[in-house]
Design a protein around this nucleic acid. Structure first.
Length: 224
DNA sequence: ACCCAGGTGGCCC
DNA sequence: GGGCCACATGGG
């Protein structure tokens, strides 16, 4: 089964995900930093706290006492480092650009390099910002995507950029499709593709891993 | 009492 | 380039 076929099947059955809705680009950027190794429910609480205190602006994040940011970020975990990263990002933009808008309107490659220079922004976070905050057609490669691809027998290259290019080549190209595919990988992964060998069977795809056991019945146990 | 979550950076080899 | 660890709260 081709990757495009996988995508079409998931999309048909799980529907449009309309994922990662946010008030504006800054909220997407903050969410991208806060979601590191963290459940989204905690990220939502943190974003809510920041907004309720009027801190969801570049100026607000840049000027707020670190202790206040930490208190807001708390429910998203890793709160000390994440609060600092939020502030560093805001201060960078404030000190080096006319506005958030101007910063985000840089050419995609330029923007990505600058994002990567910020503390806490690695390849995945940078690409998430490009795709969801700005709307550039780049794939985001996360842990779920890698795991699912591996269990489909289509393991991605280990290096991030190689993996991203592979997905971008094999999928229908464009912002819509990339956002949708990424969302589908995460939602499917949460249900049926955990790191632990004990995973629930996936009714849509043969995700059965490593020849390990499946809980619940319905998944194939075909051992070669 | 585990395991896990929409990663990244620092350190080591 | 890789492998290991810290970073921390909250839900199943």
């Amino acid at each position: 089964m081709s990757l495009r076929a996988v995508y079409q099947r998931l999309k048909r059955n799980l529907g449009g995900q309309d994922w990662w809705r946010a008030d504006g680009p800054l909220e997407v950027m903050a969410g991208a930093l806060l979601t590191h190794q963290t459940a989204w429910s905690g990220v939502e609480k943190a974003l809510r706290r920041l907004k309720d205190r009027g801190l969801m602006t570049v100026e607000g994040l840049a000027a707020a006492p670190l202790a206040v940011l930490e208190e807001c970020v708390m429910p998203a975990g890793f709160y000390r480092v994440k609060a600092r990263r939020l502030q560093e990002m805001a201060r960078y933009i404030l000190h080096n650009h006319d506005s958030l808008r101007e910063f985000l309107s840089l050419e995609a490659g330029q923007l990505k390099r600058r994002l990567l220079g910020l503390p806490g922004v690695g390849f995945e976070t940078a690409d998430a910002i490009l795709l969801y905050a700005v709307g550039h057609p780049v794939m985001v490669v996360d842990a779920y995507t890698r795991r699912i691809m591996r269990r489909l027998g289509m393991a991605l290259p280990r290096d991030y950029e190689g993996a991203r290019r592979r997905l971008e080549e094999e999928l229908p190209q464009g912002v819509e499709g990339y956002q949708e595919f990424h969302a589908l990988m995460v939602e499917l992964g949460k249900r049926h593709c955990r790191p632990n060998p004990l995973c629930t069977p996936c009714p849509l795809l043969d995700l059965c891993p490593h020849g390990m056991k499946v809980v619940g019945g319905g998944g194939e146990l075909s051992s070669p």
